[in-house]
Simulated scan of single mutants.
Amino acid sequence: MDCFCTIITADYLFFARTLHASLQKFDNKVNFEVLIVDGNVEVIDEHLQIYTLENIKESYPDDFEKIKRFESDPASNLRWALKPLFLKFLLTKEKFKKAIFIDPDIHFYNSPFFLFDELDKTDVLLTPHWRSRDPKLDSENFDQLFTGGLYNAGFFACTPEALNILDWWLEVCSYKMVKSQGFYVDQAYLNLLPVYFPGQVRQIEHRGCNVSNWNFIECERRMINNQVLINGVYPIIFIHFTPGTLKLIHSGKDKLLDEHLDEYTKALRKFNPHFEFETSEKEVNPEKPKNKYIKILKRKFKL
């Protein structure tokens, strides 16, 4: 039995439900596990399972003690540090054979279930950021290869054979969760996995996975036969709608993702009819109607 999972604060339940619905388009019985770090809610859906922080504390009190100091920051450091522990919980207590963690600001456009097949070949599956390799084309993203990590921690897939890696990841998160001096909260630690856990880690080569602002150069969007393909080859599997991604689309620089954002916005409004993105006036593209995307996400998701 396989599952997808995410970690949220209670006010972001509608994001999780939207994410779940995007997966259900490809399998209406998909197992989707949600950890809410600051409360509990009732959702009547047999394929969406809600867990609370108490479930994690009761199951792994010693492990949780290592990151307990982050409880005062549930929306950021606690959520990020909990990833390896929640995955461990799902693989051991809930007995899932394969688990894929995804950030709640992700939306699926084509079936991702081939990724579970990829886990037959490895214990951990990562998505590279695919930031620009050429500083002359995109110096900001080139520089972030050295400061933000090679892999994006908004996706992490693993099997029970990766428990040693999950325990290590938890340990280093308990050591330091900062965005300076080469550290980037939970994310930059993933750079070390292929080095210290050889043979257990692979990266996804499908460039349609984790499409976002950071890979705008290396993952070129092309319209071919009325379909957006990445580098003319890969259909879009999922887009990571970070604030940077929203801003790039909204500015008109990533216009081939306009329809994808429209679909995402409509999907969010099914679970939150009054939802709007937030932006400042200076970010509004004067060539577009000002009410097309009124707002960009207020919460600062990790880039």
Rank of each mutant, 00 (worst) to 15 (best):
L229N: 15
D186W: 00
A162Q: 11
L229Q: 14
G148M: 12
E259Q: 08
N225H: 09
L303W: 06
F155H: 05
T245L: 01
V43F: 05
E94I: 09
I165P: 01
W214N: 13
K98R: 14
K121T: 15
D254L: 08
A157Q: 06
N77T: 13
K298N: 14
N164F: 05
F155R: 02
N31G: 04
L166H: 03
S139L: 08
V201M: 08
D167Q: 02
F216N: 14
M177Y: 01
L119Y: 02
A16K: 05
R79Q: 06
K282L: 03
L119D: 11
S72N: 11
L246N: 11
L19S: 00
T6D: 07
L119E: 05
P243M: 03
Y12Q: 13
K176W: 00
S76T: 10
V34T: 07
I102D: 06
G154I: 10
A162I: 12
C219A: 14
Q187H: 08
A99C: 11
P273L: 04
I237D: 06
N110T: 12
F26C: 05
W169T: 11
I8C: 03
A153I: 06
D38Y: 02
S132Y: 08
N231W: 02
L137A: 10
N285G: 09
F14S: 04
I100Q: 06
G244A: 11
F216W: 09
T242Y: 11
Q24F: 00
V30C: 12
D11N: 15
L170Y: 00
D11I: 03
F14E: 02
F301N: 05
P128R: 05
L192A: 10
H47R: 04
K270H: 10
V41M: 05
D11G: 11
F101A: 07
T122H: 04
S280N: 14
K97I: 12
L87H: 03
D117E: 14
G252C: 06
